[in-house]
Design a protein around this nucleic acid. Structure first.
Lengths: 339, 339
DNA sequence: CTGAAAGCGCTTACAG
DNA sequence: CTGAAAGCGCTTACAG
């Protein structure tokens, strides 16, 4: 393996100069830089990251933490972040909690992040108490995406979940619905997401504004997955008179709900309207009305917010960037059946 | 930051002994080990990965390369691999090619992998010529998942794509179809996946076995996405008499095709049957008949194949592990309309 | 603009 | 079973 000494020798300079030239530091004359670059190219030299990290104190990597990479929103955020990070010359260490508290413990208390990265991106991973302390004591710059609980000093990129939920619910109300069910976050969720809390709040606010009293029988807690949506519908039907509309806290739940309704012999939207939040890739396929959120943009923005200080720019510190959402009406919502 | 010397001092041993004790090497007495562990715990010490890597020559990381993390199959493979890798104490560096040749060039020719990882997992990323050489010259153990072109000396985990396609097509034939369209890989694809080649072969073999002559007008090339499926259906309809059934090379295409058919006023399966390959999370939701493949298991197996040699076990070297697929009949396939 | 030298914080033969 | 010492391959003040 060729190392920096080989390049130095070939270029006729010191290793310090090779190091400076290769990293593009300004204090190298053009002629010297050219010579070093040529030598490095000729030898096919690339610095050893381990050695650079140890000597330089920078890892050149960013850790990205997501609850479940298999969910549309998280995969989309990661894809966009990955591109921005690599473009900026950073590696991306992926941590997928897989919905498991054990995994989260490992991440937080096992030195898994210790001196491995220069910055952190926490996607929908709210932290409190000792968990939060475990992260802040890393003393790294970071950014949260769609996290209910922000990290002190970190910027936060997200949408206004309350408003998005209000938009969704209001759309159903404007269609003429009054018996509007809601399916949202699982209280048994080990990771304690908070997104569903805000969405439920928006749901209630919209009902309230229309003078509709929230009916607990129409409010089901389930996980943010297709299977969760199916189970929730079964539960709703078990409880008695079905709603005429369902606001699902995310598109995966919504699509699961649509499937559940169909299995129960109910037609969407003739019998029951369904709306979600996300604008999942497949929302168009199943004709799902939804409140779209810019997932890729959140990932890209978050990556850039991290890249800026890492490359000498200013770290924004604690601030909140709220990205816009928009209602997309498809075929899953309609006025309730006249009766 | 506490370092190894601090622990050594507190435990009253040399740094060499601290290093050995903490890594669980056998050549340390139990009493000494206990003392070192206690000292490390008391100081909250964890070794600096950069220093360990430089001194030890191992990075403790594995790179996973996927075409598009947003596609169901890849996200599922990565999720399973991530869990196995972290469980084994390895970091996962994610590389998402994003369907872009530029990204692939960066990965291959930019030292992005140079001395950063101990092993490589290539998912559906066939390599040839100089690209293949760029990877093999890294001289790292690796594994390919569902890659058409294997890497010499590496194990390969996949399904039998030809057989899966044959199963899908045969199911349609057994339903009574003769005009069976196929939608598969995009020839313009920059990454040159090969999966679609095998699946197209299986399609033709099944037709041949049933004495059906493949009709080029029924064979459309499109990318493996929902949008690709929608476009493909539009193209099929533009070409004239629609088929009575469609075999889509993956579930995303299949679901896009279902949407396209619906938009064209055609009913599935009454007018056109549709079958895919994958058993995507949402296949059940849209009632898609498909040939299921074990995505998570492929990811888990691939990770373990890598972990084994990394932890002292035997690297299998070049060998192919074929995992089973199975037909799941739902509502999207039925006999053709009598006429 | 460039170089000599120290130092980053570990691990690994080598001895004992 | 344990330690002293060298070494991993860079980067960073410090001088000039």
């Amino acid at each position: 393996m060729t190392k920096i000494d080989d390049v130095a020798r070939l270029a006729g300079v010191s290793t310090a100069t090779v190091s400076r030239a290769l990293r593009g530091l300004p204090t190298v004359s053009q002629a010297t830089r050219d010579r070093v670059l040529a030598a490095a190219a000729q030898l096919g030299y690339a610095a050893s990251p381990s050695a650079s990290r140890l000597a330089g104190g920078k890892t050149g990597a960013v850790a990205v933490v997501v609850p479940r990479i298999t969910r549309w929103f998280f995969a989309t955020v990661v894809e966009a972040a990955e591109e921005a990070l690599h473009r900026g010359g950073y590696d991306l260490l992926l941590h997928n909690l897989g919905g498991s508290e054990t995994e989260r413990q490992r991440l937080l208390y096992t030195a898994a992040l210790h001196k491995r990265v220069d910055a952190l991106m926490l996607v929908a991973t709210p932290l409190q108490g000792p968990d939060l302390h475990a992260v802040t004591s890393l003393a790294l710059p970071g950014v949260t995406v769609s996290s209910g609980t922000g990290v002190p000093g970190w910027p936060s990129i997200r949408i206004d979940d309350v408003a998005a939920a209000r938009t969704a619910t209001t759309h159903l109300i404007e269609c003429g619905h009054r018996r509007i069910a809601h399916i949202s976050g699982d209280p048994a969720d080990e990771l304690a997401f908070t997104t569903h809390i805000d969405r439920r709040r928006g749901y209630r606010e919209a009902l309230g504004a229309a003078g509709i009293t929230p009916d607990p029988a129409l409010d089901v807690e389930e996980e943010f997955t297709v299977a969760g949506g199916e189970r929730a519908v079964a539960e709703l039907l078990r409880r008695g008179t079905p709603p005429t509309a369902i606001f699902a806290a995310c598109d995966e739940i919504a699509m699961g709900a649509m499937a559940g309704l169909r299995q129960a012999g109910l037609k969407v939207p003739a019998d029951v309207s369904v709306i979600g939040i996300d604008d999942h890739d497949l929302a168009g396929v199943v004709g799902l009305t939804t409140v779209a959120q810019p997932a890729a943009e959140q990932g890209r923005l978050a990556a850039n917010v991290l890249l800026t200080p890492l490359t000498g720019g200013d770290y924004p510190g604690e601030e909140t960037v709220i990205l816009p959402t928009r209602l997309i009406v498809r075929e899953s919502t309609a006025p309730p059946r006249a009766n």
